[in-house]
Design a protein around this nucleic acid. Structure first.
Length: 562
RNA sequence: UGGGGCGUCGGCAAGCGGUAAGCCACCGGUCUUUGGAACCGGCAUUCGCAGGUUCGAAUCCUGCCGCCCCAGCCA
């Protein structure tokens, strides 16, 4: 067997960068993550963050965090702060390299003056509607604006007066003079500056003209000596314009834009517009609702940052549009949590069990392993007594063939405790099961029978006198179809049962008083984390993700066959 | 009927002229004090289609077909 070293993670972007380093085109790598502070970051951004910071780290370079804050009508300080918090939480550090496009407004303005002086930009008095009419269509060329051939002096005068605030919003713009007949619409004299009498979150009222994305982005990259400017596919046809500015302005460096496909996830919407709508319309509780694909939502849901990084490695990087199965994300979360989360017992829908042959008033402390995947996690003691709670779903009066949990006359194991046998089912007047009367075998303390007899099931449980009440919130996908909105309003595809709050849960005492965001596994059920709504007397847990559930599959199959 | 991209397993994705990696999902099995985890095995004779070049093509050429993006003073 030839044992070849695992090839390093390679994708087309890393290949380009490695090539640029090998050829000596660049001595080092500088990337940037450039969010617009007009909303919260989501898992699509997480892919970009991991890419930009990851690439920089792998090649010994650095990654800047730069806010693309060129549109004060949509941007807010709250978003700037949330974005910084989320990037740090994900595990990345931009060090001294936190920037804002607005840091460059003065330089960008000077360069606009250069363009005007070179006859490559002009002030246009056309209205937005008129500009659109002159732009032509996808198949017909555009027409020149009647203001296209103004003199340099007039353009300079007008542009300076735009900056001085002499004109109303929308009355004039600065445009590049490129080619109104270009097949690439971005080259049909794109707008460089628009008049916006709006207060900017950082520059306040210092400006009333603001550069557009196209005019600001590449130059900001150049100012920061970004070597590789990574962005999503929809900017591909902006690249000639990106390059045009670099070619026509005295910029200090020459960044290269490279585009990759954005992340799409099944059962999820990813557009900021739609996410904002969910928040504004109160469909979710906020940007950090645990059902949101936002980084803050996933954090509250209990996803560890490592799981998001793992996921972004696993989804790969390419240029084709794709939709990643949300099951891959869930797999990454389970993979990390399986190794990291301590196990605890929690009964979500309690059913009372009385051990009839166990002495009244007696309590035993039994050792329970914290994490079978991690010996260093140690163990804890759990209290056992005569009256317990088990999961309602773990008992069936008339069990089907494949159900091997508790049933009348059947013996099962209580994890870390004893083997018990169900002797009697107690019901109330309406026929509902309210209690199980069982016997235990004192010789099976810890869970093993001296005669080596086997039981087919192990149940989790809590001692009723020791357990603490808790609320548990069960989450499933926000949408009930893999492609929400594909046939109309995405709101019609919201799953009304995506949140189920259980109030009467009983959990083992070790689960009380944990810090917010603590992540644990509830044995046999899934991974959960402590929600900020918790109080000292009543913890609240969010279900992060269920455990793989073979029984659920068997049941589902049974129903399908019926 | 302009311009720019993209088409490899159910979902991602390697492959860079030498005879289809890997992951998720799914299906079997082993093991098991979590119906978890772990482990073993199965899962594309074929790369959108059709021609061509070549000893040899997913990889090169030609022509079709399909999908995505662009007509914001959003990013």
């Amino acid at each position: 067997m030839t044992d070849q070293p695992t090839p390093p993670t390679r994708d087309f972007i890393r290949e380009i960068i490695a090539g640029d380093l090998a050829s000596g085109k660049h001595a080092g790598v500088v990337t940037r993550f450039p969010p617009e502070p007009n909303g919260y970051l989501h898992i699509g951004h997480s892919k970009s963050i991991c890419l930009n910071f990851g690439v920089a780290a792998e090649f010994g370079g650095r990654c800047h965090l730069r806010f693309d804050d060129t549109n004060p009508t949509k941007e807010e300080m709250e978003y700037i702060e949330a974005i910084q918090r989320d990037v740090r939480w994900l595990g990345f550090d931009w060090g001294e390299h936190g920037y804002y496009a607005s840091d460059y407004f003065e330089q960008l303005y000077e360069w606009a003056l250069d363009l005007i002086r070179a006859g490559k930009a002009y002030v246009d008095d056309l209205s937005a509607d008129e500009i659109r009419e002159h732009r032509g269509t996808l198949t017909e060329p555009g027409r020149h604006s009647p203001y296209r051939d103004r003199s340099v002096e007039e353009n300079l005068d007008l542009f300076e007066r735009m900056r001085a605030g002499e004109f109303e919003d929308g009355t004039r713009v600065l445009r590049a003079k490129i080619d109104m007949a270009s097949g690439n619409i971005n080259l049909r004299d794109p707008v460089l500056y628009r008049i916006l009498h709006a207060t900017h979150p950082r520059t306040g009222d210092a400006w009333c003209i603001y550069p557009t994305y196209d005019y600001a982005h590449g130059q900001s990259d150049a100012i920061e000596h970004i070597t590789h400017s990574l962005c999503t596919l929809e900017f591909e046809d902006h690249r000639p314009l990106y390059d045009w500015f670099l070619d026509n302005l005295p910029v200090p460096s020459r960044p290269r834009q490279i585009e990759f496909a954005r992340l799409n996830l099944s059962y999820t919407v990813m557009s900021k517009r739609l996410l904002l709508q969910l928040v504004r319309e109160g469909i979710v509780s906020g940007w950090d609702d645990p059902r949101m694909p936002t980084i803050s939502g996933m954090r509250r849901r209990g996803f560890p940052p490592e799981s998001l990084r793992l996921f972004s490695e696993k989804v790969g990087l390419a240029k084709r549009d794709s939709v990643v199965d949300v099951a891959l994300l869930e797999h990454c979360v389970r993979d990390v949590l399986n190794r990291a989360a301590d196990r605890r017992m929690a009964v979500l829908k309690p059913l009372k069990v009385v051990i009839t042959n166990y002495p009244e008033g007696e309590v035993e402390e039994l050792p329970a392993v914290n994490n079978p995947e991690d010996p260093a996690a140690g163990s804890r003691m759990v209290s056992f007594s005569r009256q317990l709670f088990i999961e309602r779903e773990d008992f069936m009066e008339a069990p089907p063939k494949q159900f091997f949990r508790l049933a009348p006359g059947r013996e099962v194991r209580l994890r870390y405790a004893y083997l018990i046998t169900c002797q009697e089912v107690v019901k109330d007047g309406s026929g509902e099961i309210v209690e199980l009367r069982c016997t235990f075998d004192p010789a099976t303390r810890g869970g093993n029978a001296p005669d080596n007899r086997r039981v087919k099931a192990t149940l989790h449980w809590v001692s009723s006198a020791h357990a603490v009440p808790a609320e548990v919130r069960l989450y499933s996908h926000l949408f009930n179809r893999p492609d929400p909105g594909a046939d109309g309003d995405f709101r019609d595809d919201i799953d009304p049962a995506s949140l189920e709050a259980l109030r009467g849960c009983r959990v083992e005492p070790a689960l009380a008083g944990l810090p917010v965001e603590s992540r644990v596994q509830f044995e046999r059920q899934g991974y959960f984390c402590v929600d900020p709504d918790s109080t000292p007397e009543r913890p609240v847990f969010n279900r992060t993700v269920t455990l793989r559930d073979t029984w659920a599959k068997i049941q589902a199959k049974g129903e399908a066959d019926r």
